[in-house]
């Protein structure tokens, strides 16, 4: 008999991560592990620290304590501009596009050269064009490529932001409420994008309040409450626990 090997591989872990805003502990010694090529969902009541966690993982906020482990390397400091090197990209809860430039440039800008001097000499490259075209077509924004990002509808902005994250072509995607405020048709579109990404062996973390979608998409679920882990595990089982029901509905 061969010994049973744990087939699960963690792409991203937090160990005792903390973050306070003044006296408020937004994240309190949180330790979670994100599985490779799974869709992981984070739920919790408003103010439970979901967005703060994503901001910490992408380097937008500095850690107060604890470490983040990516690719078996422990980091005490996550710098925002290093996050793609760690294989992390993200979207924002409030859509943050580059408003006064074109849809096309919003995608192109994450494809091109990062270093300053090579970027100065780099003109538009054919392979970047092909990639931008592929991304824009896959999120259904190809016809809108010349429009300014600020002139798009809310749903289109949301899709473009997801497209921009796809263009980063990394391992770990952090989606902060990708379904909030979308019409049913676009909801289906975003759902299928996430499923496709899982098929393409990417690891996805998303935050949502929509329990139907959480049940449909998640392979793994974390429930946060007041910055601490309330429950973790398989979706139906976790959502059935009384502590989770209490946190959401009150007593």
């Amino acid at each position: 008999m061969s010994t049973e090997v744990d087939p699960r591989v963690y792409v991203l872990e937090t160990r005792d991560v903390s973050k306070s805003f003044g006296a408020v502990k937004a994240i309190d010694q949180l330790s979670i592990s994100i599985l490779r090529e799974w869709i992981t969902c984070i739920v919790g009541p408003n103010g439970s620290g979901k967005s703060t966690l994503i901001n910490l993982l992408s380097g937008l906020l500095p850690l107060d304590g604890g470490i983040v482990v990516v690719d078996n390397v422990g980091l005490r400091v996550v710098k925002a501009h290093d996050s793609p090197d760690h294989g992390i990209t993200r979207t924002f809860q409030e859509v943050r596009l580059f408003d006064q430039i074109s849809v096309w440039d919003n995608i192109m800008v994450v494809l091109t050269e990062r270093r300053v001097f090579p970027a100065l000499l780099e003109r538009t490259k054919p392979n970047h064009k092909v990639e931008a075209e592929r991304i824009l077509k896959s999120v259904g924004m190809w016809e809108k490529r010349d429009a300014m990002a600020q002139d798009l509808s809310y749903g289109q902005r949301k899709l473009l932001e997801i497209g921009r994250a796809m263009a980063m072509d990394v391992q770990i995607y952090l989606f902060d409420e990708p379904f909030a405020g979308l019409f049913p048709r676009m909801l289906e579109q975003v759902k299928s994008i996430l499923k496709d990404m899982r098929e393409q062996e990417r690891s996805i973390v998303f935050v949502s309040h929509n329990m139907d979608i959480v049940r449909e998409l998640s392979d793994h679920l974390f429930v946060l409450d007041s910055g601490a882990l309330l429950a973790a595990g398989e979706v139906e089982e976790v959502l059935g626990r009384s502590a989770v029901i209490d946190a959401y509905l009150g007593n």
């Binding site: 992408s58 380097g59 937008l60 925002a80 996050s83 793609p84 006064q100 430039i101 800008v109 990062r114």
Partner: peptide, 12 residues
């Protein structure tokens, strides 16, 4: 347009 956002995409 958004300095913080472009930083997250790997630009110093």
């Amino acid at each position: 347009e958004d300095e913080e956002a472009i930083e997250v995409f790997g630009y110093r």
